[in-house]
């Protein structure tokens, strides 16, 4: 594994409900490497295992078999708090359903990953405001997220994913709830993040996204495996 490799998966498999009649294997024997600054797309139809693989690589779940190495360290068997630390310090997530917390303001949603971090409220606000400014949300900082449009919610989710200055951004079907115009805006944002040198891993079946020129690699998934 070279120094450029951030994540490496070896013979990764995930089984749900193992040993029961409803046992399924959303991910089967997947091996891959993600290099620094790369934009990689996991492409495939619904149920092909994209989200499950993204979840494994993002240290949100543990594989049934195989290894996941983040900067050369096998994280699959590490205690939960180490996985949390990796997620907090190195990864940012943009979820398909946005997963914002309704009832709190846009700014509070953006600041959420920073509450357990030992920095001041002032620094939290400055970081959040700077990102909201960059993503065109500055006028919305005190709004409740419920009242925002889909595109705005998406940008809040992106701001939240970036607020801890992550090395890798994971995006699960980021255009699923956006129209063509908003999807194009998102493409522009992702392209900007690539230019900043961020590593991006996207799970999508939207050609508008995986046919973009800034995408370095497209991995096609079917039945839990990469073809």
């Amino acid at each position: 594994m070279t120094n450029d490799t951030i994540i490496r998966a070896e013979n990764l498999s995930l089984c749900i409900n193992r040993g029961r009649p409803n046992e399924v294997w959303p991910v089967r024997d997947v091996s891959l490497q993600i290099k620094r600054g790369e934009v990689v797309v996991l492409k495939g139809p619904s149920g092909s295992g994209k989200t499950s693989l993204l979840s494994l690589l993002g240290c949100m779940s543990r594989p049934t078999e195989g290894r996941i190495l983040v900067h050369g360290r096998d994280v699959a068997k590490l205690p939960e708090r180490f996985l949390t630390e990796i997620r907090r310090k190195r990864f940012g997530f943009i979820f398909q359903q946005f997963n914002l917390i309704p009832g709190i303001s846009v700014r509070e949603n953006v600041m959420l990953p920073l509450y357990p971090v030992d920095i001041s409220f002032r620094e939290m606000r400055e970081r959040a405001d700077s990102l909201m400014d960059r993503l065109g949300l500055s006028g919305r900082s005190h709004f409740r997220v419920k009242g925002l449009s889909g595109g705005e919610q998406q940008r809040v989710a992106i701001a939240r994913a970036l607020v801890n200055d992550p090395e890798v951004i994971f995006a699960d079907e980021p255009t699923a709830h956006l129209d063509t115009k908003l999807s194009s805006d998102l493409v522009g944002i992702l392209e900007g993040l690539k230019k900043e040198g961020r590593t991006i891993l996207i799970a999508t079946h939207d050609p508008l996204l995986y046919e973009q020129g800034f995408i370095d690699r497209v991995l096609e998934m079917r039945d839990g495996s990469i073809r």
């Binding site: 949390t84 630390e85 997620r87 959420l112 357990p116």
Partner: peptide
């Protein structure tokens, strides 16, 4: 439950 899931996903520890 959903909120706990979100907080954990974005880096809150169980102890937090």
């Amino acid at each position: 439950r959903h909120e706990i899931g979100i907080l954990k996903a974005i880096g809150w520890e169980t102890s937090d």
